[in-house]
């Protein structure tokens, strides 16, 4: 099914992606010695993890096809996400949140596919 021989353009592509990604992740360390971040910037950094993840979660749940907003309950992604929020909020257990919401999501998807 797949090509075994790597092509030249692929080498450029993977090398470019690797350099760009590492550069993004590393650049702040050598830079930080030279410039001083304002206090406001450092305060803002505390919001980075939840904010970035939310900006990934919300479109993938509410616009699963990538184009139209689906806020109806025939959207298995929405049902799964509501489950994840409920389980996560109640039990504060990450593994439980993932496993239960995945199960509910797959169940809902299966049910809709069966024409419920």
């Amino acid at each position: 099914m797949f090509e075994t021989g790597i092509q030249l353009y692929e080498i450029y592509m993977v090398a470019g992606m690797a350099l760009v990604t590492f550069g993004i992740r590393y650049i702040m360390f050598p830079l930080s010695g030279r410039l001083r971040f304002p206090e406001l910037f450092e305060r803002g950094l505390r919001y980075v993890p939840p904010v970035v993840l939310t900006a990934i979660i919300v479109p993938s749940v509410l616009m699963p096809t990538g184009e139209t907003l689906n806020l109806k309950l025939n959207n298995p992604y929405l049902i799964g996400a509501i489950t994840a929020c409920a389980v996560g909020g109640l039990f504060k257990n990450l593994l439980l949140t993932i496993v239960v919401s995945m199960a509910v999501f797959l169940g809902a998807q299966w049910a809709f596919a069966m024409g419920w």
Binding site: P49, P50, L53, T54, I56, I57, S60, V61, P76, Y77, G80, A81, A84, C85, G88, G89, K92, L94, T97, I98, S101, M102, F105, L106
Partner: peptide, 13 residues
């Protein structure tokens, strides 16, 4: 692919 939003929701809460 729902595994990703599920994981991330668990991290954000």
């Amino acid at each position: 692919d729902f595994a990703m939003p599920a994981t991330f929701i668990g991290i954000v809460i």
